[in-house]
Design a protein around this nucleic acid. Sequence first.
DNA 1: TATAGGCTATCTTGTTATGTGATCAAGAGG
DNA 2: CCTCTTGATCACATAACAAGATAGCCTATA
Lengths: 299, 299
Amino acid sequence: MQLKSLRLLMGVAETGSFVATAQRLHTVQSNVTAHIKKLEDELGVQLVHRSGHVRLTTAGMALAEYAERMLSAHDEAVSLFKGDKVAGSRLRIGAMETTTALRLPPILAAFHGAYPEVDLQLQTGPTASLVERLTEGLVDCVFVAGRLDHPHYHLEKVFSEELVLVSSTPMLAMPSTEELLTATFLAFRQGCSYRQRIELLLAYCGVSAARIFDLGSLDAMLGCVAAGMGYTVLPRTTVEAHQHRFAIHCLALPAPIAQVDTYFAAAQPATWTPALARFVDTLRQVAASDTRRSESGGG
Amino acid sequence: MQLKSLRLLMGVAETGSFVATAQRLHTVQSNVTAHIKKLEDELGVQLVHRSGHVRLTTAGMALAEYAERMLSAHDEAVSLFKGDKVAGSRLRIGAMETTTALRLPPILAAFHGAYPEVDLQLQTGPTASLVERLTEGLVDCVFVAGRLDHPHYHLEKVFSEELVLVSSTPMLAMPSTEELLTATFLAFRQGCSYRQRIELLLAYCGVSAARIFDLGSLDAMLGCVAAGMGYTVLPRTTVEAHQHRFAIHCLALPAPIAQVDTYFAAAQPATWTPALARFVDTLRQVAASDTRRSESGGG
DNA sequence: TATAGGCTATCTTGTTATGTGATCAAGAGG
DNA sequence: CCTCTTGATCACATAACAAGATAGCCTATA
């Protein structure tokens, strides 16, 4: 059974004529006859009344119901890939919690505004977990900190943060090793890559271990730092955006540690659904438009 | 896009291997490659990850959802015509009201018992209306009184009734013309073909008009006749079946008027859906088993 | 790193299926 | 009764397809 034959059958059902069907579907009458006949032979049932005016038999109408289902599914599938419509498609995005909280909202808002019919699904987790989910096909794309070492993946740097050391008192230089050994660091919960940066920083300064407190929100963290509870590490733009609310000061970190890039990762563009392709378009536009004034942090 | 290609795609999705898919679907690996490739070219999207282990891309999974719909519709359609199952099919039966009331119940019961998954729809009406609905394809089959004059239709005599004149008093011969002129006849409502027989009988006896009362039920009719309200015309078996309950007597009618055949009419058997074919089987069995002991009337 | 085994892509070939145009037969309408 | 339209059939050219062989790639294992 071929979709082409079913399409012709539906044409016959609607036009009541083999010739008209042939014209409508850009073929010749003998073709229509042949396709209908083949369908009939295949199913062992006469599908079309020929005596008198042409119309579907009871069996033909029964088949037409299924043909309708098959053809509409086919047309939807084709329009999903070829047409402009992304209706009914799904987009599963994976992102770090900090990215989700601080970077994604404007992007998701823009995308959902442009394509409200796409079923958006957002999953959060640490980078390692996200990469795993991507390779397993459980998400369509992810936002992760740092490059993906997996080959065959499309990578795109979308956000770039300059991390700074944050404290309640003005700093002119990095705290001493002794200070760092006894100090408390405030960080997002386990799995957050900014937390890894703190550990990297400590290692860079020759400190093997320090007290690290888990905090759940940016406000809590900034509040605690302002209260003199300890240090933290955050993007400079985030700190500057909140400096009017908290008595906090920041110090630039050594370049290799300060620089944190958030990458967008997905399979090769050739494999993208139209919805995913549109999402990347939206992502690039939004990312380009707020590169300099980014006022969020986390990752 | 071919259903065959989609079937192969689903195979690849499930087995994760072109070779395994080829074996499972009884073809060769190069064929699987070619079909998938053609699908990809058609949609302009890569559907299968080949690097490393084979698995569907995001686009491939999106297509797979539609493929699932198309293939299941296809399989259902095929099983409807080729398989033993009639699940999900519909059968629209048209019948005269008297047939519906008195002949159909055992048939419908037997059919529904054997094929409970068929969606049975029963429409009632006078013969002319039923024939019209049949030719318009609004019903799949009808039970009508008398032969159908339309050609190209399958006709089958299923019930044969011998009509008798029913009265509250024993009769040895047809009532006189004077008696008939003043008598009241009891009949089912307008459109019933038995009623036409009454008019035919009166014409046969040279009576152009008589009082005819419409009654809704057999019991009401028999009760009124027993009470001496007038005459009626019913199948002999019906009268005999109820003679122990009502004081009624019957008289044979002239042969051409007495004989009423109920026909089953449908399009040619070649056009039947399996459900309709099964219904005809059931009909024949039931009709054959109670030809002699039919205890109903109407039509 | 080298090698062996399994996997997919590609190419070739023979066969099948398909689309097309011409012609014939049957019905509908005037 | 004639004509026009319609569907069936046939023959032919072309396209599509399935199958087998082979080459290239990747993975796993030593």
